[in-house]
Design a protein around this nucleic acid. Structure first.
Lengths: 346, 346
DNA sequence: TTGTACGCGTTATCAC
DNA sequence: GTGATAACGCGTACAA
């Protein structure tokens, strides 16, 4: 179909060099004389040559592809993470093949197969679906971000410190009782990094002998569902801890915002006995009707370190005598506390 | 490096068939006897064969790659659009190579070159950077979404209808004056689809002889900057149209939400003489302290129709005698009105 | 139904 | 500095 592609052969004929020399022009130009470089450069322009990396892949095996499987782009956290990951192209030059997981193992296995068939050099996993021991068996450089990571390399936020910091902030405001609302289903799943938030909360409260309550509740994915659950929780708390200064540590800003709105609609303002800290530093935390104090994950750093860790593994693999990692590397990124109106009042 | 890859050759040796037969097993299995299919299937499992699509690309030219250049993933609109585009993998099977543009033409040209070097079969453009006449010259199937599209195929929301609907809703609530706040810089750039919103607003007001004002203002990209601009606008409007029922049509939900919050902080509630409609149906419009009426773009349909239109072009190109489009196809998707508390009150 | 031989566009190896 | 030739792994006439 259509007009023939210009290849090294055409350039070679046109310039009376060999294919090899044309190839060298791209991969090791200094090995050619300057004038020959110019001749070839001119030929490329004359013939309007466009490089074909697919052929290069077949010849040398380097696709420069990284595969990504991400749970969704609905949550700002994931969208921003993907954004930051894609931005590393400027630094590392790797191209990204992106799939959005749907929570079903079989589907995600299909995605991984598809990615492998394109000879990706490494894989970034953000979904929680496939256990890390299975991922490890893929025998390809892998880095996970904020998920169960026992058998693979990973980059995570220091969730424990985040939980500790959030609780500490509420304690500093002399809250009589501190309540942590988290959506993780099981209280006993320490493999999920986000569980660290719970532990940080619990440890701080115990160490400082602060009255506290842990509310673990799966609230569903729709706004209505979350709102209804939080309405119930708000009513219970208000009654149960009436007269006490209440510190609320909510495990993400979306829910924190919904809770703040419920409070505003109930009282017209944030009552003096309510203090609130979210998690994530989503845009919503800043743009809420009352700006929300929150623990921010350094998404740019998480993304950068993840790709860096992946690139290192990929580079190691290309050596003649690659030595595989003895055990997975787990990097930890420090979270940042943002003090806003829900704790500092206004 | 490492253990050799299993290829069709290995399978052929193992099964005493030829490479061709193995190839046929994948591309036209029915041409083999059932028992031979089973023999090969077993061999594939025994040797743990993994297919190599890169080699297939080189052989038959079909990469099944689509390139995407998107402005950012910060705005929910783009994140959701990317999500819906990626989701079409299940329908059409195309894989996506994604780049985030940064507004600089040179950078985006580099991205396009890189994409072309991987022999993408089609290109989806959401950035506003490179003019469509230049895109058209790439001589590859292209579909743009909600951007200037004079010389290329595109899918857009019916922005004119959206603007008309929003204004109509405000008029139905007997607003004395309707004000449209839009961030597009120039009032005279009808090539940008979003300009249709302005035109729809103006036409409705003129047809129905409604007092109106058009506020076009570049507000910057930071929350602080937008808030400051909107604070000024709110003060001016409040004073200028004191005593009148005011209908505000804001060109996106993020800004609408910030404006609602400013109003709530000023009055504690949405005063009876304020009515408000946003645009986009972002999650924030539903989750705002007072849920915001808005014009929703059918992002799923936009994405699906864009890929469908692209796939059709790509298919046409593979025919022995492809006939190029005489002129670009522009599809239009109807927006949907969501009535919420900022107009229906509560 | 199955096999042979060649092409896809580049890189790697070894010569000169 | 430069060139000839063989990979890389699969698809596809054409033949049998």
């Amino acid at each position: 179909m259509k007009k023939k592609n210009i290849t090294f052969n055409d350039i070679a004929e046109y310039t009376h060099f060999s294919k090899t020399t044309i190839s060298r022009y791209f991969n090791d130009p200094d090995s050619l004389t300057l004038e020959n470089q110019e001749i070839i450069a001119k030929a490329l322009a004359d013939l309007d040559y466009r490089e074909n990396k697919v052929a290069r892949i077949l010849a040398n095996g380097n696709t420069e592809f990284i595969g990504i499987i991400i749970p969704n782009l609905f949550l700002h956290y994931y969208a921003e993470m993907l954004n930051q990951i894609l931005a590393t192209y400027e630094t590392f030059g790797y191209k990204f093949l992106v799939f959005v997981g749907n929570g079903q193992e079989e589907t995600e296995r299909r995605y991984i197969d598809e990615l492998l068939s394109y000879k990706i050099e490494g894989l970034i996993i953000l979904t929680h679906t496939i256990p890390s021991n299975e991922l490890a068996e893929l025998n390809i450089p892998i880095v996970t971000i904020e998920r169960e990571d026992k058998y693979v390399c990973s980059v995570n936020t220091d969730n424990y410190m985040g939980g500790y910091q959030a609780t500490s902030l509420l304690a500093n405001h002399d809250c009589d009782v501190i309540i942590h609302i988290n959506y993780i289903n099981s209280p006993a799943n320490p493999d999920v990094p986000a569980y660290g938030r719970v532990q940080g909360f619990l440890d701080f409260c115990k160490e400082h002998h602060i009255k506290h309550e842990l509310i673990l509740k799966e609230m569903g994915n729709t706004y209505e569902s979350i709102k209804n659950h939080l309405t119930d929780i708000l009513n219970v708390i208000t009654e149960k801890y009436s007269g006490l200064k209440k510190g609320l540590f909510i495990s993400n800003d979306t829910q924190a915002n919904i809770l703040v709105n419920l409070i505003i609609r109930k009282y017209g303002k944030l009552p003096d006995d309510f203090f609130l800290v979210g998690f994530d530093n989503s845009p919503i935390s800043q743009e809420a009707v009352i700006s929300i104090s929150t623990i921010g994950q350094q998404i740019d750093k998480l993304a950068y370190e993840a790709i860096k860790l992946l690139v290192e593994q990929m580079a190691e693999r290309k050596k003649r005598k690659p030595k595989p990692l003895e055990k997975p590397i787990h990097k930890v990124i420090t979270p940042i506390l943002f003090r806003r109106e829900t704790t500092e009042k206004y």
